[in-house]
Amino acid sequence: MAMRDITLGQYYPADSAVHRLDPRVKILLLIGLIVAIFMARNLVAFIPVVLFLILATVLSQVPVRLMIKGIKPLRFILVLTFLLNLFFLPGETPLWDVGFAVIKKEALLTAILYSFRLVLLVMGSSLLTLTTPPIVLTDGLERLLSPLKVIHFPAHEMAMMMSIALRFIPTLLEEADKIMKAQTARGADFESGNLLKRARAMVPLLVPLFVSAFRRAGDLAMAMEARCYHGGEGRTRLRVLRISDGDVAACVLMAALIFCVVACNSLHLY
């Protein structure tokens, strides 16, 4: 049971042009990228998207190995969606009769398109988390969403919750590991039996974990109050966010990307 092995907040520390971008800009860039990915309707339209991602990865100094690692957990979903699309999408040009179904050219192309979209989406988001420390990311998110405070959207509270969750995940994982060991020492069995039996075996783990989480939450609330925390009002921040030339350049590049995708779409190619 190596729950502590899970590496969280997979930030890759480096001082690259991408790392230095304003987190707000990076979040917007990711949204732009997602839009571009979904707008691309044929394989040629993906060329500018791929080029953009390659450029971003090279600039970020993040090893390609880490980017690929991000896709690994998705491989089953990838294969599954690919096969489902392949077999069940309608099409006119039969390519290959596999017995129980006929694979059609249009279905094959769409299946490739969808899988491609998924891979690019994951790579784009990994690039954001790999180049932005979680704390900066929540900061950026809070400030992007802060205009919504006018309509009483709790932007500050949401960011604070995210940041506290990130802070306590390793602590609670460690605790879960310890409780699991303690119950195992009392003869508990978490590994064998059917689904129902296993679910019931989790009770001795989950109850103490919840009790501990509530105790920690109470302690933390007290400590935050003692340190003068009283919500987002009148708060200043350690990190000052400033839009630099690099940020402007990145936004221009993104606009160019979307334009290219639209242009490629209109070419009616594959």
């Binding site: 907040g9 979680p134 105790r215 933390l220 935050m224 925390y229 009148g234 200043t236 350690l238 990190r239």
Partner: peptide, 23 residues
Amino acid sequence: NQLVATVVEDDVAFGLENIGVPS
């Protein structure tokens, strides 16, 4: 149960942010 942030310096900053010390 009393450290709030995921980075030490940000945690030390927490109180300063709360009382509105200029960045």
